[in-house]
């Protein structure tokens, strides 16, 4: 299973994947590397605004809520 996923990752990401050890993840753990940044409420506002003004649905947060949106 491990080799299958490694192969799939290599195909998906162009063979540029390297094995990163747990103690090498300080940069990846920074708030500036988080999806949506340090403030999830801001991300929620943005998703709600786009949801109410555009036709696209899905692909954002699971369980993002809805609105009547005049």
């Amino acid at each position: 299973m491990r080799y299958i996923t490694m192969l799939a990752a290599a195909l998906l990401f162009g063979g540029c994947v390297s094995e990163v050890q747990p103690w090498e993840k300080a940069t990846l753990a920074k708030e500036s590397m988080k999806e949506g940044g340090a403030n999830p409420l801001v991300k929620k506002y943005e998703e709600h605004i786009y949801y109410s003004k555009e036709a696209t649905k899905g692909g954002g947060s699971i369980g993002a809520g809805g609105c009547g949106c005049n």
């Binding site: 990401f13 540029c16 390297s18 990163v20 993840k25 940069t27 990846l28 649905k57 692909g59 699971i62």
Partner: peptide, 26 residues
């Protein structure tokens, strides 16, 4: 309902990527 399947990969010590597919019906 909405369904979502995603895969996340640490590329190296400074980058991470993800790919996902979603499907919905109302």
């Amino acid at each position: 309902y909405q369904l979502q399947l995603s895969f996340s990969q640490v590329i190296d010590t400074t980058s991470v990527a993800d790919i996902g597919v979603f499907y919905g019906s109302e």
